[in-house]
Design a binder for these strands. Structure first.
Ligand code: FES
Ligand code: FES
Lengths: 133, 133
DNA sequence: ATAATTCCTATCGGCTTAATAGGAATATAT
DNA sequence: ATATATTCCTATTAAGCCGATAGGAATTAT
């Protein structure tokens, strides 16, 4: 229950790797071999993180990936949101659906509360927390 | 991200329905038609909840399902655990895996913390909370 | 030029899961 | 007894998701 996708797990490990590079570049293939992650798959993950503005991709020879901001300004929520979208335990988080209880749906409140505690946990932990010992 | 399965959503709605019956029986087909849930599918879900000891199934004519305990003694964690297993964001929740960081793996601590906040939220909400207005 | 890298698009195979089907076991009502 | 209504059990199917792979285009340094 509540599984986190490989995308997010890989992405986090890659960012932790980059964090330890202190802003220097590392190539996708370097990270993939060091972390034991499928090279092409990780490449796509890093591209996504680049689109999200979390890392800067530098193309061409001697290129690579570097963190776009300080580790303390990248929350874990930024990361998983970029890779797996918004925290959404149930579809009716966005709009109350067709359940029998209509607008006053109590389960919905319960799910919204769950979304909140997850969001708050993710937001209160930064890449700095997760990459430093 | 963090989707909750239809199994759990359906199961919760069924239990809320039963909660409002104040301990009286309701058949699976009654619940399915009232809640707009596939009849046979819900039937299996209720059987699972019965195995887990959350509801009592009474077979034969005039049989049905009733809550096994008071609504205040059924936590939301009981329900989702019965239907979708333990809260486990990542596999290494149980045993540290083969990630490059070994025993001192910081991501793992982060995931364990996430598991905790989810577990605590689920445990601190009961069927009573979710079924009463 | 050449090499190395990110970035883009498409596809595949396996797994999960919601849903369906058929029936066995069991209990009540008539 | 018989018919009926129900939970309970076991398979199977159809569709979607996801990790992974493949091939190349765009870009940049040497
Ligand atoms: S609106 Fe989602 S369960 Fe009621
Ligand atoms: S042990 Fe799971 S990420 Fe390190």
């Amino acid at each position: 229950m509540f599984p986190v996708s490989s995308r997010s797990q890989y992405g986090i490990r890659a960012l932790v790797y980059l964090a330890r590079k202190q802003g220097h570049v590392a190539t996708a293939s370097e990270i993939s071999s060091r972390e034991g992650i499928s090279a092409k798959y990780l490449e796509g993950i890093l591209t996504t993180l680049s689109s999200a503005g979390l890392v800067l991709g530098e193309r061409g020879k001697n290129g690579g990936m570097r963190l776009a901001r300080d580790t303390s300004e990248i929350t874990m929520r930024d990361i998983v949101q970029a890779l797996d979208g918004q925290v959404r335990p149930v579809a009716c988080v966005d709009a109350a659906g067709d359940c029998s209880q209509g607008g006053a749906c109590l389960p919905r409140r319960f799910w919204l509360g769950l979304k909140s505690v997850i969001d708050e946990y993710l937001e209160s932990h930064t890449l700095k927390d997760v990459s430093e010992s």
